[in-house]
Every structure is written in structure tokens, then in C-alpha cells.
Design a protein around this nucleic acid. Structure first.
Lengths: 342, 342
DNA sequence: AACGTTCCTGGTAACGTTACCAGTATAGCT
DNA sequence: AGCTATACTGGTAACGTTACCAGGAACGTT
């Protein structure tokens, strides 16, 4: 029940029941050394008054706030909002609160966000790093402050992280195209400072190698994050001399842009040009030509990251070693890459 | 800079500079009664030590935490994540933090979320109410706790709110269809306990009346929120005896579902059946047949709600009267409702 | 020179909670 | 009955901050 809102304190319960504040505190925190009858009376009084512990005071005294800071690069992006959803769910289950910060894919913003979170005395931080710099994360790491990277990581840094297996994803989707018979593969990739962009490219290129198909560097472009960038960056490739028969995109968003560019030129999907994405955003299956993509377990990434962080905080669970997780991804073949008649 | 992470206190600065804790506090809070030289020394020391105020202690003492609670029904929904984005941006600008809770479109979840937020001593709450019950909000209202409803509101409750003009949106999009020559209009609406569903329907029905088109109740169905529900609920209507020539949907999501159902039956959009949505989610323009929709100013809703709340908190700005805002929406006509040759 | 005024600074207490230690009462033992 | 052990309870201090009041120095005024 959302009872009255003014602060009810241990003191009020103490006065109502006649027990000291100490006893009241112990009773409410399930400490053992309280007589059952006493505890019952106190609990009843607490309920009656609508007692709600003051987490500030609790946090100040015990230096555990039960609050986790979360920094994402863009909440409005469905990938990250799904991640946040997973984090929020896990937080509720584990009885933590989350303070959300949006870095807007900006390095200074990330730094500022972390500072605010530290000022808020959060117990730990979950962060999808911007990755245009790594000092911030390095500092956090050196300071021993508990944090977990989610969705992106630094290969060269020894930190906890929970990410999708982007390399394998890149490999799988490329192999899929090759098996479908597509030969001239292009890639409209994200900015290379982002780990997932690098890994997906690596998978892409390794798959080509495995199938003996040479990598045509003129068909690879980097830096696309949005629909618009997908359109802009794919145009030159699609209009170039050696038109690709299939385009691997950094994300579903970018794929939407590429699809638009393809149609703009008058080509059809998938007959003239196959397009594949990454993430499996909700809408990708709703397109008239549904998008082939790699499904990453978005909510699960958030859930596991949260769980990992809390485990570290509460159990001090092998605090020495870092925990690095790459979650399995899944190829979701749809029409945008299916050869007619197959 | 993300400096070292261990807590630096006023005490540390006090010891380093030789001034008392009080003076240090005053200097850092820009109080007037501190000599300039003193202030400079203190600021320098604070910077050197990497001082970061402890917001718990600050909040405990001053009963202002600089933290706002945010409750949404589903962060993973692009409409709400855009809203959160706006809130997060405004929060950063206004120097507030936000604690995010996801009620999962569940009434008990909402109640729980609010209780947690109160326990966190937030200064105020922004909430998109679930609306399957209103007691929670009523209690909040009675208790005088500062809060603002965002995106949804209760017509019968006198509270602050910032919502899109759903009535007008429903009216505009319906009028648009009628002007395009569509006559047999269906509506796949959301659950009627949600204010926006009721208002959009009202706009729909008033527009029909204005144009002298009778409302066919067999073409109206309620309760759709997701893509799947859009598919399921529209099927009977589309397969019914009196097939509609156009379908007004509760949201873009629902419209995606309806579009799928339409194609499934073998009809084409917009020639056989026009489909229009609501919200203008990012992807709606990327479809092969781009979706006509009503654009609601999602980030702006969040921004204004935050601004309103903070104004109330800080300026105690006409605390008596509630502030009710309906933001303008915009018709975005696209192919999914454009008659050939027009 | 004595006085009030202004400006700056420090001391003390408090916000609500919990940790630690000390105290009291009861029970169990000889 | 007297003793120790046990079970429960209360007192005090502290977390880091700010509000309030008081004190002291420096200055100008008469």
C-alpha cells in the first residue's frame, strides 16, 4: 500500500511500542536476538504506521545503498532499452534500485555520468562504454570500484563483462549468405572503436576466408550507427562499379537504412541484393520483407550483468578474478536473404 | 575526471586547509559569507583531493536528494524509451538523477515501484500510470507528494500531467482517411482503461460524426498493445462480412501487426486496406510501405514533465494549482494511407 | 578610546540508521 | 541460596553533511 508519505522513523515505532530504537531496528532487520513476541509487536506497529526505511540513512550508516548505477549510450535505441529492461527486472528481483544515466554516445558524457553515480554512492556500476576513449574505464578499474561492462568491452582491459558473441554472430550471418550462394558481400559496419563492430567484422572476414571468397575492401565501410548513416554510407557502395549481391549491416537499424537505399536505386530485396542485420530488434520481423538477423539475448545480457555485479558485491565472490561472458547468439533467417525457390 | 573512488569528505579538506568543516561546506556551496581567498584555497584542495559530495549525507541532512523517481510501464517499448530519453536529458541539464522503475504494465508492480521510490527518498516522481486501477495515484495525490503523470492521465483526477493531445490525434488521422476517400473505417484500439485509448477513440468517433459517416461498432475492437495482439484482434475484422477499407490503430506497434494480418489475407496496402498508426516510432518511416501515423513529441513529453516537476520542487511554483498540459501532435501522412494517383 | 557594526569563522547539534558494548533479568546449575 | 550462562534489551557513537548560533577580528564612527 502506498500509505501516507511523510517519513515514519524507527523513533516513531519505538515510541509507539515502548521498545528502544535499537530493538526496533533489530526486529525489522530479522536479527536473531529479539524475542518473538517483541518482534511481532514491532512488526505490527511498523505496519500500522506504514514504516518505510529511509535508504539514505541506511546507506550513510552502512555504506551499502542497494543502488546500482547504469550508464547506456542511448536509451532510445531498442537494443539498449531491451538491455535496460533486463537490468530493471533483475534489479527488482534482487531488491536493488537503479540510477539511469544516458551518455548520448559521448565520451565526456560518460565520464560525467560516472562521476554523478559515484557521488550518489551507488554500490556498483553497469555500463555500456562509449569506447571512443578508455581512460574512464581504466580509472574505474584501477580504483577497484565494482563494475561490469555490458554489450561492449575492451579486449585489452581485464574487466568483468557480459557481451553477445559478436564474432560468432558476424561469422554465422556471413556463412549463411555464402551458403545461400551470395558471393559479392559488402559490409556496412559501425564505428571501429566499438568492440562489437570490430568483432563482427572479424567474423565476417574469417567466414569469407573459410569459403575462399576474397575480401573486397572497397565494399567495406565503417561508422554507421543510425538509419540515416545506413542510407548515406551504403549509397556509394550500391552505386559503385562492383555492386554487392548482399550487404551485412552493423545493426538492424543500419539495415533499415540500407534497405531504403537499395529500394531507392530500384533494386529488389533479396533478389538483387540481400540485406542482413544484427540484434533482432522487435520490428525486424514485421517488415514486408522480414529481415534476416542475428538475435542477441538483449534482456538476458542485462539480467546476467546485474546478477554478476550483485554476486560480486554480496558474496565477494572470487573478487580477484574477473568474469568474462560471451552469450550465445542465434541466426534468424528471414526473407531478406533467402534465395527464391530455396 | 574519474579520480580515485574512495570517499573524500569535507573533513579531509578541512584537515588539508586548516579551515573548519563548516567553512569548507560553505565555500563549496557558494554561500556568500566566505572570504574569497579562503574559498579559493578550499576549492583548490577539493579539486586536488578529488572531492565528490556524498549525496546520501546531503540528502539525509537537507531532505532534498536531487533524485527523481521514474516509473514507466515498459522501457523496452520505443514510445516509453523515448520518453525516458527526454527525462534523462532534462535531468542531466537540471542536475538531478533519476531512479528508474519498470512496472511491466502491472498494477501491483506500479504500487511496489512507488513504495521503493519513496523509500529512496526521491524528491518527486514521474509516472506513466498503468491505469488498471487508480488508488495508487489517488493516494499519492492525497499525500501531497510531488508527482507528474506522463503520457497517460486520469480525467477524473486533479493532478499534474503532460500528455500528447490524443483526442486531436485520433480526430486528425481519421479525418485524413475520410478526406482520402476511405469510408469503411475500423479501429483496433488499446485497452480502454488507458486514457490515450479512450481519447483516441473519441477523436475517431467525433471525426466520423463530423463527416456524417456512421460508426460501425462491429469494426471496433479494444485491448491491443503489442504486434501480436494487433494481428490477432484485427483478423476477425478483416475477414468479416463488411471488410474495412482502412484501419486506425492504437499504436505503430499494433499497426505493424495489422499490416501483417492484412498481407496474410492477401490484401495490399493501401490499395485494399489503408493502415494508420500512432506515435511515429523511428522505424515506421523505414517500412517498404511507410506508415502514416500521428507523431507525438515523445522526448518533449519527458522533458516538459521533468521541468514541470522540478519547477514545483524548487520554486514552490503555484503549488496549489495543478498544471495540465496537452502537447500538440502532428499528422505524418505516408504511403500506407495514400490513395493511388493522389 | 570606547563603541557598534560588519565580516568571517568555528562549535554544536541534528537528519535516520546501525554497530558495538554494556546492562539486566531469567533460567539452569551446584 | 548463590553462582554463572544465556537471552534479550538499551545507551552511545558514528556515517557526512548542513543549519543555527556564537565568537572574534577588523573597521569606521563619535
Amino acid at each position: 500500500m502506498v500509505d501516507n508519505v511523510k517519513q515514519v522513523t524507527l523513533r516513531d515505532i519505538s515510541e509507539l511500542t515502548g521498545f528502544s530504537i535499537n530493538t526496533v531496528s533489530r526486529a525489522l532487520n530479522d536479527k536473531e536476538e529479539v524475542r518473538e513476541g517483541t518482534r511481532a509487536k514491532i512488526l505490527a506497529a511498523a505496519h500500522k504506521l506504514g514504516y518505510r526505511p529511509n535508504r539514505l540513512a541506511k546507506g550513510l550508516r552502512s555504506s551499502k545503498t542497494g543502488t546500482i548505477g547504469v550508464v547506456v549510450t542511448d536509451v532510445a535505441n531498442p537494443f539498449f532499452s531491451a538491455l535496460v529492461k533486463g537490468i530493471a527486472r533483475a534489479a527488482r528481483d534482487l531488491d536493488y534500485s537503479i540510477i539511469l544515466q544516458d551518455s548520448d554516445e559521448d565520451y565526456a558524457g560518460e565520464e560525467e555520468a560516472i562521476n554523478v553515480l559515484l557521488s550518489e554512492q551507488v554500490d556498483g556500476i553497469l555500463i555500456t562504454p562509449v569506447q571512443s576513449g578508455k581512460q574512464t574505464i581504466e580509472r574505474l578499474s584501477e580504483s577497484q570500484f565494482p563494475f561490469v561492462l555490458v554489450g561492449r568491452y575492451f579486449q585489452e582491459l581485464d574487466t568483468n563483462y557480459v557481451v553477445p558473441d559478436d564474432y560468432l554472430g558476424g561469422f554465422m550471418v556471413t556463412e549463411h549468405l555464402l551458403q545461400q550462394g551470395y558471393k559479392r558481400l559488402a559490409m556496412v559496419n559501425g564505428p571501429l572503436h566499438i568492440s562489437s563492430a570490430r568483432e563482427r567484422f572479424q567474423g565476417f572476414s574469417d567466414a569469407l576466408m573459410k569459403y575462399g571468397v576474397p575480401l573486397d575492401e572497397s565494399l567495406v565501410v565503417n561508422g554507421a550507427l543510425t538509419v540515416e548513416e545506413g542510407i548515406e554510407l551504403s549509397r556509394p557502395i550500391l552505386k559503385g562499379a562492383t555492386r554487392p549481391s548482399a550487404v551485412v549491416c552493423y545493426s538492424d537499424f543500419v539495415a533499415f537504412g540500407v534497405m531504403q537505399a537499395v529500394r531507392e536505386i530500384g533494386l529488389s530485396i533479396p533478389d538483387d541484393t540481400a540485406v542482413v542485420g544484427f540484434d533482432d530488434v522487435r520490428m525486424s520481423s514485421c517488415l514486408q520483407v522480414p529481415l534476416t538477423t542475428i538475435r542477441s539475448p538483449k534482456e538476458e545480457l542485462g539480467r546476467q550483468a546485474m546478477q554478476l555485479l550483485v554476486d560480486r558485491l554480496e558474496k565477494n565472490h572470487n573478487a580477484g578474478e574477473t568474469d568474462k561472458r560471451k552469450l550465445a547468439v542465434e541466426l534468424v533467417p528471414r526473407e531478406s536473404s533467402l534465395v527464391k525457390g530455396k
